[in-house]
Write a protein that binds this DNA or RNA. Structure first.
Lengths: 216, 216
DNA sequence: GCAAAAGTGTTTAACTTACACCCATGT
DNA sequence: ACATGGGTGTAAGTTAAACACTTTTGC
């Protein structure tokens, strides 16, 4: 599982600290083995629930890609199918399961120093992060990082943090609102200190962002 | 393997007629089992070579997605990783390998009558075809259906056949030529009967089509 | 010359960008 | 009143769609 979130102004991923060899002490992607009686998607949902206490209904969960290089686990041949999960911030703190040593790590810190990762997981993180970043351009998955109700600023901040670049709030507002069935008004607004209250929205049924919202 | 091509004005896929139960007589995707000493991409390239006598260097080959539903093969549990191959037309005719009964079938015929397919392969064909059709919008993979040297009309015909819709030749011409490093002029031109000769191009290094070329 | 297909130019509308401006709230 | 962030208007530049038109060949 590549479980991404946006937390404390960073694009983060859920990792577990390995307590046993090989790669003892290094960070690894959480995951587990397919049960004999479950489909791939079901196994991913189960693993996600075990690691984060989040149900698949609350998050964006999609199959990403398979990895099967021969030496990727020094113990035996392992073919992995990596799933991508995008969870809202702050994500439910990790529960008791296998993931007692689960930590949130900023993606950019991993890309800057891949040696902190076990197995070929640094490469998987790199691939999955690039995939997620790219998908923000032409899909509505950014909303998966937001809570059930959110403002346009919340959504814009997701884009800015994941991409690491500033977007014009005015133009962002109009571009997003032009997409049919992306943001559904709730009729309510935020109350904060110092500033006009923002309208709250829920994510609608739209999945494609057309036209796309490009990075620089 | 989901091996697609454009042949005789149709968007086609390579299938094999099953000679043994289960699903004897039905059509199936070609494929095989992963060897103990090969990576996923290597296995896909090997299978492609066995089925079509095409080397991975000549075609577009990418991992598509995994399928692992419990009952998808009635004999035993099988997890498949489907690869997408786009091969030029006319593709090298199938050689001696496992695929003695290989046939090219139009994708739309399968979608119209999925019962001709064995296992869950009709669903895989549907998913893979939708993926390929969608990728024409924002990548340069359409060129993978063309021979080494091709004209803008050849490329446009690929789009028209795969999407099943007509495109304006004039606007298509300019949109494609505006993409940096997509089409490299060879300096030569076609000779045909009745019509101005068209410039011939080779595919360049560009992979992304930005801005995209949308379907209706 | 004529038909056919390739390729260019032009007009109009739509969209993007940048930024000025107004709005609604807390202090 | 004023600071703060939300939201709207607008003008300039860019891009896309539709289609008239020119070019280059075979017959």
């Amino acid at each position: 599982m590549a479980v991404f979130t946006v937390r404390d102004g960073r694009f983060g991923i859920l990792l577990v600290r390995r307590g046993n060899p090989p790669f003892k002490g290094k960070l690894a992607l959480p995951g587990g083995f397919l049960e004999p009686d479950e489909d791939l998607d079901d196994a991913a949902a189960r693993e996600l629930a075990e690691e984060t206490a989040l149900s698949a209904a609350d998050v964006h969960l999609e199959q990403f890609r398979g990895y099967g290089a021969v030496g990727r686990d020094p113990r035996t041949r392992v073919v992995t199918i990596c799933y991508l999960a995008l969870v809202p911030s702050p994500p439910a703190v990790v529960a008791g399961g296998d993931a007692a040593d689960a930590v949130w790590v900023a993606v950019d810190d991993i890309l800057a120093d891949p040696s902190m990762m076990a197995f070929d997981h640094a490469r998987i993180v790199r691939d999955a992060a690039a995939h997620a970043r790219g998908k923000l351009e032409h899909t509505t998955i950014a909303a998966a990082f937001c809570p059930k109700e959110f403002t346009l600023s919340d959504l814009r901040r997701v884009y800015e943090i994941v991409w690491g670049e500033a977007l014009d709030p005015r133009n962002f507002h109009r571009k997003i609102m032009k997409v049919d069935d992306f943001l559904l008004p709730t009729g309510t607004a935020t109350t904060r200190d110092g500033g006009r209250p923002a309208a709250l929205y829920r994510a609608g049924a739209a999945t494609q962002l057309r036209p796309p919202l490009y990075r620089r």
